[in-house]
């Protein structure tokens, strides 16, 4: 076979085109789903069902991750701070890192694994078994019926889960610092309150809301446009987790640069 140097550029170009199409599709799905939020009928039951699935049912996994993240963070920072005799900074540094960074990002990644993949699999199955076509033929807009409640619920529930993550993480680090490392409990609390601004918390929550939108839109998009039967559904679920996770980390960088 003859070597064609242009083939490399053709390959890169083709991949880039696919990527841009995918991003365009995801963004237009997001705009459509938000636009349809203001068009009747309003199906409150679907919103509550999704909020329960995304929020309430994810709370245990978020609590578990949050507690251990806070504890391990306290343990790790204590080694460094002890060198300078600055153990009192354990509380504030854990709280700041959780509120600004770890809370929203780790909550986002945990929920992606649990919820994003489930959304892609559910909608993908509905696509390949013609259930989405059935909705259309019953004069029901499938985007409004399936995607809008998931996107809105995810945008609302992710910040709430992040609050839970932050709170339980700080409690975890408190127990680690006070009971295992022997730091004064009152000092831990007062230093933490003194060093952490409200802005640190709410910018973290804003990030979480953006991650919520990413998780739901990507999961729904991949499932909604799934093709080729069971294989397509599996691929949609994998793609949803990969694209959401990478997008969360990239979005996190830009949001941090812009907002803090």
């Amino acid at each position: 076979m003859k070597f064609r140097p242009m083939a490399i550029f053709e390959y890169i170009g083709a991949r880039f085109t696919v990527l841009m199409e995918e991003l365009g599709g995801i963004f237009s799905t997001f705009l459509q789903s938000i636009g349809l939020l203001f068009v009747p009928p309003f199906r409150l039951k679907l919103f509550f069902k999704q909020m329960e699935f995304i929020g309430v049912e994810s709370s245990f996994i978020v609590l578990l991750t949050g507690a251990f993240t806070g504890m391990v963070f306290a343990l790790q920072t204590s080694y460094a701070f002890r060198l300078f005799g600055a153990e009192n900074l354990i509380g504030p540094s854990v709280a700041l890192s959780l509120a600004r960074e770890l809370g929203p990002v780790l909550t986002g990644l945990m929920v992606t694994g649990r919820v994003g993949s489930a959304m892609a699999a559910e909608l993908g199955t509905m696509r390949v078994t013609e259930q989405i076509d059935a909705l259309s033929t019953m004069s029901i807009n499938p985007v409004q019926y399936l995607i809008t409640p998931r996107v809105l619920s995810s945008i609302i529930m992710l910040p709430m889960l992040t609050v839970l993550f932050d709170f339980i993480g700080i409690i975890g680090s408190y127990f680690m610092a006070v009971f295992l490392l022997g730091i004064n409990g009152n000092r831990f609390i007062s230093d933490t309150i003194y060093m952490v601004d409200l802005k640190d918390v709410y910018v973290g929550l804003l990030k979480a809301a953006v991650f919520g939108a990413i998780i739901a839109v990507v999961g729904c998009y991949e499932g909604y446009f799934a093709q080729k039967g069971a294989e397509g559904v599996g691929k949609a679920a994998t793609q949803a987790v990969v694209i959401s996770s990478v997008s969360i980390l990239i979005a996190d960088y830009f949001l941090t640069a812009l907002l803090f």
Binding site: T125, T129, E130, A134
Partner: peptide
């Protein structure tokens, strides 16, 4: 419409 796969909401 009756779909090939019945398309019932499972």
């Amino acid at each position: 419409v009756l779909f090939q796969s019945s398309a019932l909401f499972d």
